[in-house]
Amino acid sequence: MAIGVISDIHGSLQRFIKAYDFLKDTEFILCAGDVLYHGPRNPLPEGYDPAGLAKYLKSIKQKIYIARGNCDAEVDETFLGIPFFSPFFLTEYRGKKLMVVHDFEKLKENYLELADIVIHGHSHVWQIEKFSNCILLNPGSPSLPKGFEPVPTIAIIDRDIKIIDIVTGNVVKTVGDLRKE
């Protein structure tokens, strides 16, 4: 079974519901932070409803593991009833070590030795690339995408890693067979 990866939801219930169409059959969900609020630098995302999003997140079937983002407050953790891990969260999937952190730039370089895949957010720009001895994965943002061609995205990790456009359902990028790496 696959795992879902999301980041930078920023309180958009509408966009999370759309993203959840792709995440609903995953074993669990990893979130790289910025769950309920948009922060002072971001515009209000379409479908902004932090209270509705919190209620929806409490109702989903999978466990969700969240690395605290710069827009996440302690009260969010209490309100959701889901722990926020800081500065990162570690887990394992199919023999691969995964680390989830919000802002990759604040991660100490020696931490990279702890993981095969480092999942991060903060930039709102999707990314899959080799870095040092690991794969860097940023699922982008379903709510406030940024970059050259801003596309609302999430990621799915199964035998490969896919970045998915939640509006069209198209796979934006795939990185090979994780069994071989």
Results as ranks from 00 to 15, higher is better:
residue 43 P to M: 02
residue 60 I to L: 07
residue 55 K to P: 00
residue 47 G to H: 00
residue 44 L to K: 14
residue 51 A to R: 12
residue 34 D to Y: 06
residue 51 A to S: 12
residue 64 I to S: 03
residue 41 R to D: 05
residue 40 P to K: 14
residue 64 I to M: 11
residue 55 K to Y: 13
residue 46 E to A: 02
residue 55 K to D: 15
residue 58 K to M: 10
residue 64 I to N: 04
residue 45 P to L: 05
residue 50 P to W: 03
residue 35 V to Y: 02
residue 61 K to E: 14
residue 59 S to I: 06
residue 51 A to F: 11
residue 40 P to H: 10
residue 54 A to C: 13
residue 56 Y to P: 06
residue 42 N to F: 11
residue 48 Y to M: 04
residue 38 H to S: 14
residue 55 K to T: 14
residue 43 P to K: 09
residue 47 G to D: 00
residue 38 H to K: 14
residue 34 D to H: 07
residue 38 H to R: 13
residue 33 G to W: 09
residue 62 Q to D: 08
residue 46 E to I: 10
residue 52 G to P: 14
residue 51 A to L: 14
residue 45 P to N: 08
residue 38 H to E: 08
residue 50 P to S: 07
residue 35 V to A: 06
residue 40 P to F: 12
residue 38 H to G: 01
residue 32 A to L: 03
residue 54 A to R: 13
residue 32 A to K: 01
residue 48 Y to S: 04
residue 48 Y to G: 03
residue 43 P to T: 00
residue 33 G to H: 07
residue 62 Q to P: 07
residue 62 Q to S: 09
residue 32 A to H: 03
residue 48 Y to N: 04
residue 35 V to D: 02
residue 35 V to E: 04
residue 34 D to R: 09
residue 44 L to S: 12
residue 59 S to H: 02
residue 52 G to T: 12
residue 55 K to F: 12
residue 41 R to P: 00
residue 60 I to K: 09
residue 32 A to Q: 03
residue 34 D to K: 10
residue 59 S to M: 13
residue 54 A to P: 06
residue 58 K to W: 05
residue 51 A to N: 11
residue 48 Y to F: 15
residue 47 G to M: 00
residue 60 I to E: 02
residue 39 G to H: 09
residue 35 V to W: 02
residue 35 V to R: 04
residue 51 A to Q: 12
residue 42 N to Y: 11
